[in-house]
Design a protein around this nucleic acid. Structure first.
Lengths: 145, 145
DNA sequence: AACAATTTGATAATCATTATCATCATATAT
DNA sequence: ATATATGATGATAATGATTATCAAATTGTT
């Protein structure tokens, strides 16, 4: 069982990209959070502060190298998260009032059913399905009370 | 069975908003397309041309009044579509290479199963679920060949 | 240590989107 | 119908997020 940073480093090196302190800090911040983060949140969460220009460049590099994936949320903000091969397959729970997003995993049988369901829904259109992602909207306990 | 424009007009009027020629043209363009559209696509699809400043203002007004909903796609572009109460509940089929997005509906029993699945996935987190949306990724017949 | 390649941070440039405002169109009241 | 009020339009300017630039610093390699 290899650690996260080792996996990331190996992947980046194989692509001729260095795993620097800044990038490690960004990955660390994402790994400590149960949901995708905005550039601004990454800025606030890293210590010492990484300038915005560097964060923007790094999340782009990390996205281009498949270490991160970009996620667009309903408040028009871009958020980044660890790619599926690093964090495991999961879905999102979105709180509509407060816009918080948290990861949620389905039990294996539900996940299988969902995958089959996606397959058959796409069948008529002639698509070849490569993935799926479920977004569940609602109110978090805080907003619901 | 009341027409789309009549429904939209009634809703807008009740909110003190006028259903003008420009807005009607935007709704018409969206209704003639099986998927969400960008501002640029709306610009190209309407005749005579509506200036960007007006399109931006109108899609905002229409979104604020619940006639449209905003959708963020993986190419970082914002797309608009008719709200669910006008177009019916549906999901999205996204072609990863060419970024085309088309609507897809599930058969009623699949839809029920999906809704139940979303419910139970959220249960542990204490969320109150109000909706869900499935995005199916893949390759459209064109990109697959 | 010397060299090559990549990264960094400061800054400027770009792009999509939003705000402003004078003019125009539509609705309502007289 | 005409007057008046309200909302909409389109041209343009302003904003804000993101990306590009580039000299200096860092890291990896010989």
């Amino acid at each position: 069982m290899v650690g996260l940073h080792a996996k990331v480093e190996k992947s980046l090196r194989s692509q001729g990209v260095r795993y620097t302190t800044n990038r490690r800090a960004l990955i660390e911040a994402l790994n400590n959070t149960a949901g995708p983060l905005t550039v601004e949140e990454l800025y606030r969460m890293t210590e010492p502060r990484i300038p915005y220009s560097s964060i923007y460049r790094d999340v782009r590099v990390l996205t281009d190298t498949q270490v991160l994936t970009l996620h667009h949320s309903a408040d028009r903000s871009n958020r980044f998260e660890l790619a599926e091969w690093l964090s495991g397959h999961h879905h999102h729970l979105v709180c509509v009032p407060c816009m918080a997003i948290s990861d949620v995993s389905l039990p294996p049988d539900s996940e299988r059913r969902l995958a089959r369901l996606a397959e058959s829904a796409a069948a008529a259109s002639g698509y070849r399905v490569t993935g799926h992602s479920l977004e569940i909207e609602g109110l978090c306990p805080d907003c619901d009370s």
